[in-house]
């Protein structure tokens, strides 16, 4: 996968702040500017790229000891709260957890866990449609996501497939193919399968 030139600042979303082989956390450079749930991101540099799927997004106070308090009692709108309290953008931080779903090395693209996690402070980038399409040519990531150590796996899988389908020339055909893969992975769990499929069909 050619990623050169795509490491532009415009695609950069943040930095890795903690990492394990199965998942890593990214601190977003801008408040509230995390990629949507289920997006495909990558971090690291050419030669050791790790791909992840956004699994959980949270915004909280930077200092755990200082809880945010309600400030908008006299304001007309939400925006006005932030305008009146410009320090908020510095005191709050948006982070997201990403499930590692693949990596790229000199041997090419692999859709299973990387041998080593990404380094802390490596930049995380949003993958464009071309990358997302190439990564989801094969549907192995579904199995990785279904087994990932995260809450609401099914929601993440559904969001990931919905987003990925937009990168394919025939989104519906992609979803059907992905749905069939899910059906195979979830044999014996018809309730779970039905729930995911309902999320994909809408």
């Amino acid at each position: 996968m050619a990623v050169k030139g795509k490491t532009a600042k415009a695609h950069r979303v943040g930095e890795v702040v903690s990492a394990s082989t199965a998942a890593f956390q990214v601190h977003c450079h801008k408040l509230y500017e995390a990629p949507p749930l289920g997006s495909l991101i990558r971090c690291g540099t050419d030669g050791s790229l790790v791909y992840g799927v956004v699994a959980n997004i949270l915004t909280e106070s930077l200092d755990p000891s200082r809880k945010p308090i309600a400030r908008g009692a006299d304001e007309d709108s939400e925006e006005a709260v932030y305008r009146s309290n410009p320090q908020l953008t510095r005191l709050l931080a948006t982070r997201f957890d990403a499930v590692a779903v693949g990596f790229q090395d000199s041997g090419g693209l692999h859709r299973y866990l990387a041998p080593l996690p990404p380094r802390v402070h490596s930049f995380a980038y949003r993958c464009d449609e071309g990358e997302a399409r190439e990564f989801t040519e094969s549907l192995e990531p579904i199995a990785v996501l279904l087994g990932a150590p995260i809450a609401s796996q099914d929601e993440v899988v559904a969001a990931f497939l919905r987003l990925a389908s937009r990168a394919h020339p025939d989104p519906q055909a992609f979803l059907v193919r992905a749905g069939k893969e899910l059906a195979v992975q979830l044999i014996g769990q018809s309730q779970r399968l039905n729930a995911i499929l309902r999320r994909l069909s809408r």
Binding site: Q172, V176, G179, K180, A183, I187, L197, R198, L200, S201
Partner: peptide
């Protein structure tokens, strides 16, 4: 959509 997915798999 669900019908298409399920037929041939489950």
């Amino acid at each position: 959509f669900i019908a298409r997915v399920v037929s041939g798999t489950t």
